[in-house]
């Protein structure tokens, strides 16, 4: 659960990096550069390793210094106690439902709209598309007050749907899928329509299957973002039974930060596991998605 888990075997396919020093013997500057990288990696991994190992110390011991990087006497009581102190099962279920429905909803709607903007012809297409793009820039904090009102008006206050519905329409996903469909050969669709396939058939049997890698990027990004999001759940949910994981964990730590360290950290570690799985198996699409639309 420590360093080994964060080195996925994904091979690099990038072009060979620029070579600065081609000597075989390490020079002092090479040593200094490597040392800098190692220190940065240690500072990055340190808090994560501390979190995992402290979550395995007994609740009473977890305050004591010095910290242990490898627990000498692993103790699973924090993992049992966290279930007793907050409803980890329900929190996880809520997070999974919210994240799952948003991810699937985004993939479906973005595939449809992206396809329409890329392949269907209608008047005002570029105008509508730029309108969709324009909303990409607006942060959620600016629209949260009216969204809260609309959710209230729909009678969805303090439900999981309040989190799910507003997050499904995705300008970014629509943009990504449009680019993806534009990259697929137009001849495929032409051939299909010569064979008598209608637009739905052409989309569903020819283009949608080919666009699965693009959809995977949207799904993984949606998962990463909404599994971790804090601001919207803080505002749109009220009762603890509708909390998602980040909200539940913050309330477990408490205002004064007095929640027993190892118990809180056990919850944090558990909440990281799905994200870690995505990191191990979906790092590449995640990386591509995060930097999509940036590099031309």
């Amino acid at each position: 659960m420590t360093t080994a888990t964060v080195t996925p075997p994904a091979p690099t396919t990038r072009a060979a990096p620029p070579r600065r020093s081609s000597r075989a013997v390490p020079t002092p500057s090479t040593v200094a550069r490597t040392a800098f990288l190692v220190v940065a990696a240690a500072l990055t991994l340190g808090p994560v390793i501390w979190t995992v190992s402290t979550s395995l110390r007994s609740p009473a011991e977890s305050f004591t210094l010095p910290p242990q990087l490898i627990p000498t006497d692993p103790d699973l009581t924090p993992y049992i106690q966290v279930f007793a102190q907050i409803n980890m099962g329900l929190l996880t279920l809520n997070s999974a439902l919210v994240t799952g429905f948003i991810a699937v909803g985004q993939m479906l709607t973005a595939a449809l709209a992206g396809y329409a903007f890329a392949r269907l012809e209608f008047r005002g297409r570029s105008l509508w598309f730029s309108l969709v793009l324009a909303t990409m820039m607006v942060p959620v904090q600016v629209t949260i007050v009216p969204v809260f009102m609309i959710i209230r008006g729909m009678g969805l206050s303090d439900t999981l749907l309040a989190l799910i519905l507003p997050a499904i329409p995705t300008a970014f996903g629509t943009f990504l899928m449009r680019q993806y469909f534009l990259g697929l050969p137009v001849e495929l669709g032409e051939a299909a329509s010569i064979d008598g396939a209608g637009p739905w058939r052409t989309f569903a049997s020819i283009y949608a299957p080919l666009a699965l890698p693009g959809l995977a990027i949207i799904g993984i990004l949606a998962f990463n973002f909404h599994w971790n999001e804090f601001f919207r759940p803080l505002i749109l949910t009220i009762s603890e039974q509708n909390f998602t994981l980040p909200l539940g964990l913050v309330s477990l730590q408490g205002n004064m930060g007095t929640g027993s360290i190892s118990v809180v950290l056990a919850g944090v570690v558990l909440s990281m596991i799905p994200a870690l799985v995505v990191f191990l198996f979906g790092q590449r699409p995640l990386r591509e998605g995060l930097t999509a639309g940036v590099s031309k």
Partner: peptide, 26 residues
């Protein structure tokens, strides 16, 4: 290179709330 890249990328997959919980203790 893969190792370093993965390590530097890793914090991005965590929730800012969880990270803040951890850092509050640290």
């Amino acid at each position: 290179r893969t190792f370093f890249r993965s390590v530097f990328f890793f914090p991005l997959i965590l929730s800012a709330a969880s990270v803040s919980i951890i850092m509050r203790y640290l």
